[in-house]
Nucleic acid binder design. Structure first.
Lengths: 216, 216
DNA sequence: CGGCGAGTTGATCATAGTCAAGATCTGTGG
DNA sequence: CCACAGATCTTGACTATGATCAACTCGCCG
């Protein structure tokens, strides 16, 4: 993978990394920091379609299709590894293994989106919030940026609300409920998980361990 | 692509093609007919995460990841082209072009899901139904199974409701509204589009023609 | 003719949205 | 170190969109 590395990039919180409708000559993997993927309607309504954690790809869509279908903005300071779009195409010719891994990542992204769609389409507010916290904590554990009982939450409650298709107010009230239930508490950029078991239960998760990811 | 073709398959309406949580040794492209992709919660709630039309891939997730994350069931008689999972891996080594196209398809699927997520998360019932009809008609036009003013709708209203995160009853009432507005009418498996322009307008769609698809 | 799946319609209920006001937290400059 | 401003979070009161329940109709197939 080193062969294809074009450089590194550091960006601040709130920096747009890629924009919906544009085609960047670069794509990125996240070395450090977090971001949100989202789409915006003309009237300002926003849907967060995913959370970007270390190890994730940014800009694959633009590299493969003509242009990005969503925007990505940093929610904390980030450290990115930069690749050239053209090199991706070259890689498909030279490194079938890596190419397969890229497709794996795309399939995984599809999987996340499907899950999110079920959450937004068919779960109640309490289930949604529980599901989101469970997933975020689980993924953060995977990449080693969380402990069993707590993690940093660089997102705002508005980000979460927009991810879940709920209003900010209702999301906040639902978080209070989870706090009252002694399941999880999110205060001042810090999420504390008191009972991950129960959280999964409320979210309606039956579960299995997450798949092994390829290293990129 | 002929090299990798393992056979053909004909299935009836209501036949499950792949199941969530399983890994099939095959993957398919649709030559004819339609299907739905969906996920089910233990308590029976169902979320339709996509509609499968001719030219679409089925089973890519299972081929790339360990197992399928959603089920696919035929909603009309279908004619499928069958490939072996193992051959996909071989293809990545032998045909970089085709491999890139497969990744393109995965990225497109991701795009559809993102759109759907916006619809379910942030649009009103009327907007959702309008958006879904617009998209289905648009895609059907693309693959040549619709005219400018009408198309076959093998789905039930329950399928649509489950795709939009609405109840069946409310979906039905919203369809009545669109009929009253003289925009579109869906009666007995037939969708009629009276005013595609207006439909797009109600759905809140601004924009551009769909991307060119690679032939597989 | 009878039965079943799908679609239609009305009445009532509940979840989540909106509006509004206040509290708390954060960063900035004096 | 403090004061202030803007962002973020919190809580309450009221509203509205869509869910649920229930009954009925229609079309199709035996």
């Amino acid at each position: 993978m080193e062969t294809f590395k074009a450089g590194e990039l550091r960006v601040d919180r709130d920096t747009p990394i890629v924009l919906e409708g544009t085609s960047s000559p670069h794509l990125y993997t996240v070395l450090e920091g977090t971001a949100i993927r989202f789409k915006t309607l003309e009237d300002g309504r926003r849907q967060v379609i995913g959370f970007v954690l270390p190890g994730d790809f940014i800009g694959l869509q633009a590299a493969v299709m003509a242009e990005m279908q969503h925007s990505v903005t940093a929610v904390s300071a980030m450290h990115l590894c930069v690749f050239n779009r053209a090199d991706l195409y070259r890689m498909f010719g030279e490194q079938p293994e890596r190419s397969f891994d890229v497709t794996w990542l795309a399939a995984r992204e599809e999987h996340f989106l499907g899950d999110q769609l079920v959450t937004v389409g068919r779960r109640s507010a309490l289930e949604r919030v529980a599901h989101a916290l469970h997933m975020l904590h689980g993924r953060a554990l995977d990449v080693g940026i969380a402990t069993k009982t707590s993690m940093d939450m660089p997102f705002t409650q508005e980000d979460l609300a927009d991810a879940l298709g709920l209003s900010l107010v209702h999301t906040n009230k639902t978080l209070s409920r989870l706090r009252a239930l002694q399941v999880a508490s999110w205060k001042t950029k810090k999420l504390e998980i008191f009972d991950r078991e129960r959280l999964a239960d409320i979210a309606g998760i039956e579960n299995a361990p997450p798949p092994i990811r390829p290293l990129i």
